[in-house]
């Protein structure tokens, strides 16, 4: 059995259910994301993966589009 590894959001496949592990980036950015509901431990669903391009995810019931650059900074498992 292969154990799940955490990886940046942009590497994940469409339709996967994921959990946020951590968010990299500056102090302001990380807390901003947290205020929007991106908290470690939170479950998200990857609706549309975008490489390249933005990803679309579902978190706490709402759909959010995230730029490609930011999808690098969100680590999920």
């Amino acid at each position: 059995m292969t154990e799940k590894h955490s990886a940046p959001l942009y590497m994940m496949h469409q339709g996967q259910n994921l959990t946020i592990v951590e968010i990299h980036g500056g102090y302001g950015f990380v807390n901003r994301m947290k205020e929007m509901g991106f908290i470690p431990g939170e479950k998200i669903e990857l609706i549309s993966s975008g490489h390249p391009g933005p990803v679309m995810i579902k978190i706490k019931g709402s759909k959010i589009a995230i730029g490609h650059g930011m999808a690098h900074k969100i680590i999920v498992i």
Binding site: F29, M36, M56, S62, K63, I64, G69
Partner: peptide
């Protein structure tokens, strides 16, 4: 310079 990160809510 870089443009600001893109986060946007997609309403139903």
């Amino acid at each position: 310079g870089e443009s600001a990160p893109f986060v946007m809510e997609l309403p139903p």
